[in-house]
Nucleic acid binder design. Sequence first.
DNA 1: GACAATTAGGGGCAATTGCCCCTAAAATGC
DNA 2: GCATTTTAGGGGCAATTGCCCCTAATTGTC
Lengths: 143, 143
Amino acid sequence: MPDRVASEACHCSALREAARRVTRLYDDVLAPTGLGMNQFSILARLDRVGPSTIHDLAGLLVMDRSTLGHLLRPLEKRGLVRLAVSEQDGRRRVTALTPAGRGLVARGRPLWARAQRRFASAVGGKAALDLCLVLRQVATADF
Amino acid sequence: MPDRVASEACHCSALREAARRVTRLYDDVLAPTGLGMNQFSILARLDRVGPSTIHDLAGLLVMDRSTLGHLLRPLEKRGLVRLAVSEQDGRRRVTALTPAGRGLVARGRPLWARAQRRFASAVGGKAALDLCLVLRQVATADF
DNA sequence: GACAATTAGGGGCAATTGCCCCTAAAATGC
DNA sequence: GCATTTTAGGGGCAATTGCCCCTAATTGTC
């Protein structure tokens, strides 16, 4: 039994499976915006922190710099974000929401809140809060 | 403040970010096998449950059927799994580990265990256990 | 001021993820 | 037994993820 338990308790698989399941929930709820959860989270983060470089934004999203670079392409093509070379540092590309992007985030927020409520009511409000705290710690841990 | 907290506590983003971070840890540790965490988890699951259909295996992995179909392709090409049409049901394709696949899983297990220990020692043993229980519940929840 | 080391980002590659629609096969209804 | 419905899976599409190596720009050193 210990062997079976040990192999079933893979921390990484558990995280990935839960992330897959919950992403589907949020994707469904956000569908009317034409955005997936990932795209929404990028735009929402940008809305909160203001214009930032790819490097900084990727750090906030616990994401590889090149991943974010790829993800910004379709958002730029749809006119939701604008990229411009920094004036202070020619290497940096500053990413900013366009008015259209800001508008879409605003329209998505109530939908997002609905997904949050659905999650909390299925898992339990306190459990959801606790979970978030642990996850935040995990995401920024130095293994 | 309530606004800022609310927007920073997105359950889905927290899950995805933690999953990204932890996946990197496991990928690094498993690198000597030439497998990523995801591939390893597919093979390990297959090793545990024995030959199964894409449908069933995808269910166990909380994964879309077509996603698993895509992921099996490179594993098949590398000779780690074998796919065969079921004799009982011509629609099903039974997936099974090859000896090479079983061997690779066996070689990966100690590395995987090392990642598990590194995770537990960073997060705390009890916290890691509790986290896994909640994640398992989340992954199989009916939202 | 010139040269080395560091940093920001892109391009290519491959895997990961899930949607849609399609086909084939099985199960169901009559 | 035959028509309908359901189920298993593939193919195509697009986004997601991160690695590597490359270029350009900045910073640090002398």
